[in-house]
Nucleic acid binder design. Structure first.
Lengths: 98, 98
DNA sequence: CAAATTACTTTGAATTACAAAGTTAAATTT
DNA sequence: AAATTTAACTTTGTAATTCAAAGTAATTTG
């Protein structure tokens, strides 16, 4: 029997990052403010978790303007979706497979 | 829409504790050595995670002898099972419900 | 020009996680 | 009987993580 917790991805262990990815799996280009409100986070906390996911290339960031206001939005990368799906599979295997 | 990450139980956020609880949900009285081997942990690491779960009353500890050797084993409490099931429900709601 | 908005970055403190080494007590081997 | 092994910790120390709060910068609105 192989190690069942090794496949759990550290990048998704935290609840906030789990929340971010869950949202980005089903929504394209979610913006900073919406994500912040939905997950009830401070600016700094969201920014730092996004940076962590970006560093892993799991999330892509787009900076634009809506009207004349700056707008930052996020999308899961193909790599991020794959990694997250694998994480969910690992979770399921762990929970159901013992 | 209510906060979707608030129901995720901090006690189960860590992979090791997730692993311990997953095993204890389907196995009664799992012993120290087996748990340690299955999850591939050091003694100290397992002991400290178990202590954390015990402090929350999610896990019960039994010390006995098997033959002439000391044996420590663990069981999920009713409270632990309930809390873990709620955690899984919260996870599912987060992942599927966005 | 003052205040607000957006999106950060920095700071600092608290908590968490983990390996490694040390401990205890009984059991077994030499 | 001395040395070693086994089981299950506890202690120590370090590193990483998490988060709120405060500070920053570049607009823009009043």
């Amino acid at each position: 029997m192989k190690n069942l917790i090794a496949d759990i991805n550290k990048s998704f262990e935290n609840r906030v990052r789990l929340g971010i990815m869950s949202i980005l799996m089903v929504n394209d280009w979610v913006d900073f403010g919406d994500l912040k409100d939905t997950l009830d986070l401070t600016d700094g906390n969201l920014a730092s978790h996004i940076t962590a996911l970006e560093k892993e290339k799991y999330v892509q960031v787009r900076k634009a303007f809506i009207g004349k206001r700056p707008n930052t939005s996020f999308q899961a990368t193909a790599e991020g979706r794959k990694a997250f799906q694998e994480h969910l599979n690992a979770l399921e295997a762990l929970i159901k497979g013992m």
